[in-house]
Write a protein that binds this DNA or RNA. Structure first.
Lengths: 273, 273
DNA sequence: TGTTTTGTTGCGATAGCTGCACCTAAGTTT
DNA sequence: AAACTTAGGTGCAGCTATCGCAACAAAACA
C-alpha cells in the first residue's frame, strides 16, 4: 500500500505544496491567483482540506485572497520575512564569493557595509597565511579603506564632502588636502568598477574593493581584497577587475536584474539639487 | 479554563512563530542564526516541539541549519517564494521609479501598500543624505501619512469612514474632528492625482504621495516622497505633480492601459477588518 | 576528567486533522 | 426565470499525528 506512506509533519507538507502551487505562475502577468478547487485538483487532495489550509495560511498572512475573485495568491508575510533578513542573507550569500577570492589571490577578503561614517566589516575570509586578524565588527573611517570609496561611489559629491567633514574632525589638514584626490577616485570607481588604495592605512591595508548592489541597484556593501604592498600597479588593476567582476556576480545573486534596461537613466544622478 | 481556547491549525501557528523568531530584527548581529533551546525559550514552548518542527521546516527548505554551529536560519525556499510574491514584483518594478524620484528631489522615497488599517512600507529608497532610516516592514496608521490618502482615494466614503473608525479607537476627538477634512482631501487626490501632508506626523513625515494602479486600474500601492518641512506650498504641489506623473508611469509599467477614460469609477471595497 | 548546556528520541494520551456527505452561493443554460 | 452546474465552506465520527514529559545523547565547558 504505497498510498499510505508514513506522514510525519503532513500538515507542513500540504501547506508547502499549496504555496508552491501558488508560486507556480508567480511572475506571469496573469497572476491573479488560483481557486480552491483548482488547487485541490492539482494536488489531488480534498477540497475541504485545501479550503481550511488556505484559510489558516491567510490568517498568518502567508497567502492573500482577492476579495472579489476569491482567488488566493502568495501573501505579504513571505515578503516581509525575507525583507528583514537581507543583512543576514548578504553575509551568507557573499561567503562563497569571498572564499573564491581568497583562493584566487591567497589574500584576505572582506565584506563591508557603511555604518554612519565608518566602514564596518561584516565578514572576513582568511587567506592561507599564518596570521589572520579577525576583522568582523571592526569599523574604520570611511576615508581609510578602498571599501570606503566603493561604498560611496554613487553618492553625490556634495554629500560625500559632508560625510568627509564628519570624518575629519579638525586638525588633519594633510588628509583634507587629499580630499580632492579622494573624490576624484570615486569617478574611477564608477567607470572602472573598483577602487584601489595602497598607502592609506599604515599597516597592511592596501587593497582593492568593488561595490555590491542589492535588488534595487543601490550599493549596499563592498567586497575588498587585501594586497601585498609589494604588488605592482599592474597587479593591482588586474585584481581590481576580478574583484569587480566578483562583486557583479554577487549582486546578481542578491537579486539585481543584470543591466536593467533603462538603468543608466536613473543611476549616477547629477541633479541640480 | 479560558486559557485553553480552541486552537485550529496550531502547527502552522507554531511554524510561523518560529520563522518570525528566525527573521529576528534584521539589524541585529543574529546573522549566524538561533539555537533550538533559545527559540524554545523565546516562544515558551517545548524544546522537543521546536526541534521537530525545525527539522520538518528544514526538510522543506524553509530554514537552513549551519552544519557546524548547528543553528538555524531562514532558508532558500522562503526567499524563493518571497521573490514570487505580488509585492516582490511590485518592488522590482517600482525600484527604478523611486530611484528617479530620490535623484530628482534628493529626498527619501517610499513604496507603500495598505494592510488592514495601516500603511505598510514595502521599499524605501534613501536619498543621498547621510542618515537613512530603514522603513521596510514598518506600518503607520492610515490616517497619518499622505500615502494613506493616496491608497484610499477610490474608496467609497462609507468604507473610508468605517476604516477610520477602526483607526481611531475612541479618545482622539481632535483627530476625529479632522475626519471631514481628511475625507475632503480624498477628493483632491482624485482630481489632482496626489496627496499632500505637511503636519500630521510629528517628526519628519511631511510628504507627497500618489496612487499606483495595477492592470485593472485598482489602487494597489502608493509612492511617497518625503519633503523638507521648510518647503513652500508651491514646492509641495510642484513635487506632487511629478510624483503623480511618476505613479502613472509606474502604473503603466504594471500593465495599466494608459487611457482609461472612465477611471473614476473603480472602487475596491475590502473591509479587511 | 567531571559537569553543565544543548539537542534528540520513546511513548502513552489526547487534541486536531481527514474525508465524506451535505449545504449555500453564484454563475450558466435552456 | 427555473433548473443545472460549479466553487467553496461546514459538521461530524473516527483515526492519527502531535504534545509533553522524561530519559538519553552529544557538545561545550572547566
Amino acid at each position: 500500500m504505497s498510498d499510505k506512506p508514513p506522514a510525519p509533519s503532513a500538515g507542513l507538507r500540504r501547506d508547502m505544496e499549496i504555496l508552491e502551487v501558488l508560486a507556480g505562475h508567480g511572475d506571469d502577468r496573469d497572476a491573479d491567483g488560483f481557486g480552491v478547487s483548482w488547487i485541490a485538483q492539482r494536488l489531488d487532495r480534498e477540497k475541504s482540506q485545501v479550503s481550511r489550509a488556505l484559510r489558516a495560511l491567510e490568517l498568518e498572512g502567508m497567502v492573500e485572497r482577492d476579495p472579489v475573485t476569491r482567488r488566493y495568491r502568495l501573501g505579504w508575510r513571505l515578503f516581509a520575512l525575507a525583507a528583514r533578513t537581507q543583512h543576514a542573507r548578504l553575509v551568507r550569500v557573499a561567503a562563497p564569493f569571498l572564499r573564491r577570492l581568497t583562493i584566487a589571490f591567497d589574500e584576505e577578503a572582506y565584506l563591508c557595509v557603511l555604518r554612519g561614517n565608518q566602514v564596518l566589516t561584516l565578514l572576513s575570509m582568511p587567506s592561507s597565511r599564518v596570521y589572520h586578524r579577525v576583522w568582523e565588527g571592526v569599523s574604520v573611517p570611511v576615508i581609510m579603506a578602498a571599501a570606503g570609496r566603493a561604498l560611496l561611489a554613487d553618492w553625490q559629491e556634495e554629500r560625500v564632502r559632508e560625510l568627509l567633514r564628519t570624518v575629519l574632525p579638525s586638525g588633519l589638514d594633510h588628509a583634507v588636502a587629499g580630499e580632492e584626490e579622494w573624490l576624484a577616485d570615486l569617478a574611477h570607481v564608477r567607470s572602472a568598477g573598483y577602487a584601489v588604495s595602497d598607502v592609506e592605512l599604515d599597516d597592511s591595508a592596501a587593497g582593492v574593493s568593488a561595490p555590491v548592489r542589492d535588488h534595487r541597484g543601490l550599493i549596499t556593501a563592498a567586497i575588498s581584497v587585501a594586497v601585498a604592498r609589494t604588488a605592482t600597479q599592474d597587479r593591482l588593476h588586474e585584481m581590481g577587475a576580478i574583484v569587480a567582476e566578483t562583486a557583479r556576480e554577487l549582486s546578481a545573486a542578491l537579486g539585481l536584474e543584470p543591466a536593467a534596461p533603462d538603468a543608466g537613466y536613473y543611476r549616477s544622478g547629477q541633479p541640480s539639487g
